[in-house]
Design a protein around this nucleic acid. Structure first.
Length: 423
RNA sequence: GGAAGGGUGCUUGAGAGGCCGAAAAGGACCGCCUGCUAAGCGGUUGAGGGUGAUUACAGCCCUCCGAGGGUUCAAAUCCCUCCCCUUCCGCCA
């Protein structure tokens, strides 16, 4: 959510920034509602001031055993008017908030203008894609051959875009989760949290999934509860409606969670393997920081995610999203893309964003620089550190051997009883 | 799922239609005092919004006692609905 004050003061600037992302936001409508709202407020508040003053008079007269019935009669009318105005105000507030919640974040000045994902920029690469002495197989063939992945039975048990991991495949998944959590907690200073995988609509609104993107989530029947699409939602909402002490910032959390996505509109894309599924695991990094530090914090966050891929020896590149590919909530976003032999290209495995105060304003997360200071909105950031399912696929494909077995990356071996391969 | 009791400021906790943004205590902060610390004394200590002012201080006003409705001239206080917490029972990992 953007600062209404800023929109009021400099609507042209906001309009221009939104245009860069390819959005036409209904700012005129918003400003008109804002105007109406303020006009109504000053009218109704005058009446309320009067009501309060007269109520005091009535109280005093009653104490003095005087007759206050004339005043009471007069106030009946005033009270009814207040009620009517309050109702009008409630409707306007609701409309205004709804409009505000549907306007995306504005890009940071360092974000280049583009019209689609094709305009995203590669920033750097790490590692060299391996030259195979054989035709590399995709993970869905390797995994099925080794009987560590089972898509057919998952389709029976649930449906399309689900899979079972079995035996050492399940171990490998678990090893990746533990490895990443350990690195981020012991080397990068993140505090681990284990969040609920179901959130209410306030939380989903706070991080920006609602009201516009409800279709992307699984909703529980007859409840205002949603399966989380990412741990970002519960972890960012940890401090919703709170004022944090400034000396607690920056606050770093790392969370493992399952993620659930309806993938509405993704029919026909990435239909094979574990790349695009309805349920996957992810280790997520979330930060709450002071505004002036948030872009440094973003760089550090990206570096923390890169460390994981480096330790796993997986080639990757870092790309910066252009204005058109920021998503709804981000002011700046960098992706990590891992080399996926079956695709013959780099595939997104982490997405790191600075939301600035966009989420903090929605979720009302503030801090005080020092005791007694005015509360200010924090800046929130998050990034995958990294997506487990895609990482498992990348390990399987990049570490495959000509005999169809898979070498286990060295850093994972302590997590897999010292085994060095899956065969 | 059944029964009972609760949700008040940073915390504990009083208030049971008008004098209550809210007693009291604790905490924190600022003074004074004091070799230092502690104690003592005095003071300060919530958020949001409107207006003002024109970019940041004041003043004035409104709202907020879990959330939302209702009754009333007037609600923390009475009524209704919902949410959350605690305890007991049932069921269960």
């Amino acid at each position: 959510m953007l600062d209404l004050r800023l929109i009021r003061q400099d609507s042209e600037l906001i309009r221009e920034m939104l245009r860069k992302r390819g959005e036409e936001a209904p700012l005129d409508e918003l400003l008109e509602l804002d105007n109406q709202r303020r006009k109504l407020i000053s009218e109704v508040e005058q009446l309320k001031a009067k009501r309060n003053a007269v109520s005091d008079q009535v109280a005093q007269m009653k104490r003095n055993k005087q007759d206050a019935s004339a005043l009471i009669e007069e106030m009946k009318v005033v009270s009814q008017t207040i009620k009517d105005y309050d109702e009008q105000l409630r409707v306007i507030d609701e409309q205004l908030l709804d409009r505000q919640l549907r306007i995306p974040n504005i890009p940071h000045e360092s974000v280049h203008v583009g019209t689609s994902a094709d305009d995203n920029k590669e920033i750097r690469r790490w590692g060299e894609p391996r030259q195979f002495g054989h035709d590399p197989l995709p993970h869905w063939e390797l995994g099925v051959n080794l009987d560590i992945l089972d898509f057919d039975r998952a389709a029976k048990v649930t449906g399309a875009r689900f899979y079972f991991l079995k035996g050492l495949g399940a171990s490998l998944e678990r090893a990746l989760i533990n490895f990443m959590l350990d690195v981020h907690t012991s080397e990068h200073g993140y505090q681990e949290v284990f969040p609920p995988f179901i959130v209410n609509k306030h939380s989903a609104t706070g991080t920006g999934q609602l009201p516009k993107f409800g279709e992307d989530m699984f909703k529980l029947e007859n409840l205002d509860y949603y399966l989380i699409p990412t741990a970002e939602v519960p972890v960012t909402n940890l401090y919703r409606d709170e004022i944090l002490d400034g000396d607690r910032l920056p606050l770093y959390h790392v969370a493992y969670s399952a993620c659930f996505r309806s993938e509405a509109g993704a029919y026909g894309r990435d239909t094979r393997g574990v790349i695009r599924v309805h349920q996957f695991n992810k280790v997520e990094l979330v930060k709450f920081v002071m505004p002036e530090t948030s872009y440094d914090e973003l760089d550090k966050l990206v570096a923390n995610a890169e460390t994981i891929l480096q330790k796993l020896g997986l080639p990757y590149r870092v790309t910066q999203m252009c204005t058109a590919d920021l998503g709804f909530t981000a002011a700046k976003k960098l992706d990590l893309e891992v080399w996926m032999p079956s695709y013959g290209q780099y595939v997104e495995i982490s997405s790191c964003s600075n939301f600035e105060a966009f989420q903090a304003r929605r979720a009302n997360i503030r801090f005080r620089r020092e005791p007694g200071a005015k509360p200010e909105y924090v800046h929130t950031l998050n990034g995958s550190g990294v997506a487990i399912g895609r990482c498992l696929a990348a390990v399987i494909e990049n570490y495959q051997q000509s005999d169809g077995s898979i070498e286990i990356p060295e850093v994972l071996r302590p997590y897999m009883r010292g085994l060095d391969k899956i065969s």
